[in-house]
Each structure stands twice: as C-alpha cells, then as structure tokens.
Computed example of a mutant assay.
Amino acid sequence: MNETLYPFHTETLDRGGLRYHYVDEGPRDGPVVLMVHGNPTWSFYWRNLILALRDTHRVIAPDHMGCGRSDKPSAEDYDYTLRSRIADLGALIDHLELRDITLVVHDWGGGVGFGWAVDHPDRVVRMVVLNTAAFHLPAGKSFPAALSLARIPGLGAALVRGANAFVRGANRFCVTRRPLPPEVAAGYIEPYRSWSDRVAVHRFVTDIPLRPEDPAYAIIEATQAGLSRLADKPMFIGWGMRDFVFDHHFLAEWERHFPAAEVHRFPDCGHYILEDAREELVPEIALFIRAGAVEGAGRDDSAEPAPAESRA
C-alpha cells in the first residue's frame, strides 16, 4: 500500500502476547477522539478524518485483533467474539488513560464502542455514529442474504477466507456514489491476503447475534438497554441511505434512542460513507467535534453546511 495514504504514528498494546495495533496521532494533551472500525475494514477507514483532526485532537484508532496491522491469531489462540473486542478496547482506553472521549463508530464499531461506553458513560462526552448499530436487528428489517451466505458452515469459510469475497465485495458494493480508487481498494485488501489473515473477517460475520443462544446476544441486549445512559450527550449521525445492511430501519432506531441527534442523510451513498461522502462528511464531523471541544460551546447554525439532501 502507498504509505502516503496512511502516514500515521502507530503503537501496539500487548494483549496476552498478541499485538493490538492502534494509531495515536495529535497532541497528547489534546481532546480525545476514539475511532472504532467495523468489518472488513481497519483503521485505514478513518484516514481522512484522522488527518482533519490530528492538528488539534489526540486521535486514537485501534485495529481489532485479526484486523489491519494487529496480530492475526488462529481461532484457537484468540476468542473472536464481541466480548473480547470490548475487552480489548477497554484495555487500550485504560492503558492510555483516556477520558472525555468523543466516540466515533462505524459498522461493528457500534457494538464494540457502545458496548464499552454504556458501562463508562462518565468517560464519553459526545458520539459520532456512521452506518452502524448497538442494538438488535430492528423490527421490519430482514437479515441480508449476503451475510446469511457467509454464515453457512463450510461455504461461508470458502467464500470469506478462501476467495476473500467479503473484502472484495465490500470494496465493490459498499460504495455507491463512485468506485474506490485502485490504491484505496488495495489499502482495504492489504491486511487480508491469505486464508489465515481473514479469520477475523469471517468470525465477525458468524458472531452477529440473531438468537438468544448466540454468544453476543446478551451483550447487545445489555448495550441496547444501556443506551439511555448516554442520551444526554451530543450525537452526530452521518448515514449513507443506500447501505443494504444498515439501512433506514437502523437509522430510525438510532433516532428513537437519541431524538436530539444531529442527523445528516446522504441519499446516494452506501455503507462506506466516509469514502462516498468524504468531501462533505469529514468537514461536518470535524466541525461537530471541534465545536464540542470548547467547554460550553454550541453549534453555530449560521455556519453549518447545507443539509445533505439539498446538495447537488
């Protein structure tokens, strides 16, 4: 991968002999922004937002174990479950002694980030939510066929781990406004070049909780119930309305839990919203975060960009 796309200072945290990789950019005494990615992305997904904030904020962006530049242990050497993901994130937050956190999440990052946040509401000051969930499948939303296919024993592993269909498919179908530039598509593929490299990609799919007996089900249940502990904190929602997984059903659920949230809809954008709507969304998120970094500061409505629906 062209390193100019990922020009960041990085560190690793030891997790029982496994390296948990994370970006650590910006002034160490700056306001903290914690970015939690999903599947099959890695901290590379946040690159443009990191660049927009690192002059004024301390930006932390971990790679989940098995993802990005973190170690990729076998399923026998690491418990690839939501519980482990939340524990890893919490260990990093405690190691770095992070407080007054702006939490930014996408995809599985919602379950992981909010899974931690509902138990530590005093350490979170605001939230940015991008095509994700921290609750069960909303009523009226059917489970996508593509994800069901990836969960079929044998066939799912052959597709996700053997053919790398999940990563390559995401590069193709998670953007709807324009194709990913070749160098960006290559950046997403870079960490996932072999069967063993793709264990986390597959395990994330099989860990989606659909039934009470699924390992992550009770955690999502508790996270959903705990969202009210964060209801008084400012929230920015950026949503690609052409996301075939996290669609309008999920957005409506976020709005139900957080009716005061600042919502920006992008009708022509897909799941990789930071790729599709980069030019508009990155400045809007940065404005929201910077405004909140000043104690007592409110949004200057006269300076806000036009609503996403009204832009050509």
Rank of each mutant, 00 (worst) to 15 (best):
V124D: 01
L51M: 15
D197W: 05
L274K: 00
D207H: 04
R177W: 04
D107G: 12
G110D: 07
S228M: 13
L49M: 07
F8E: 05
E183K: 08
T4W: 15
R229S: 01
G115Y: 04
D122M: 05
G66N: 10
W108M: 02
L149I: 15
E284H: 15
D29M: 10
A163G: 04
T12S: 03
H106M: 04
G115E: 02
E213A: 07
Q224D: 14
R19A: 09
M65P: 01
A293G: 13
A75V: 06
A231M: 01
V112R: 02
V129E: 03
D29N: 11
V294W: 09
L287N: 05
D214M: 15
C174P: 15
G226Y: 05
P153K: 03
T41I: 10
L130P: 04
G26Q: 04
A306H: 01
I101L: 00
W195L: 03
L96D: 07
E213H: 15
E275K: 11
C67A: 13
T223K: 02
I101W: 03
L51N: 15
R83N: 04
A252K: 11
G111H: 02
A218I: 09
V205I: 09
S74V: 15
I237H: 06
I219D: 01
A139L: 05
W195A: 00
I208W: 06
I285K: 09
I285E: 09
H264A: 11
D247K: 02
H9E: 12
S70R: 04
E213T: 10
E279N: 11
H248C: 10
G30S: 12
I237A: 01
R198K: 08
E284W: 15
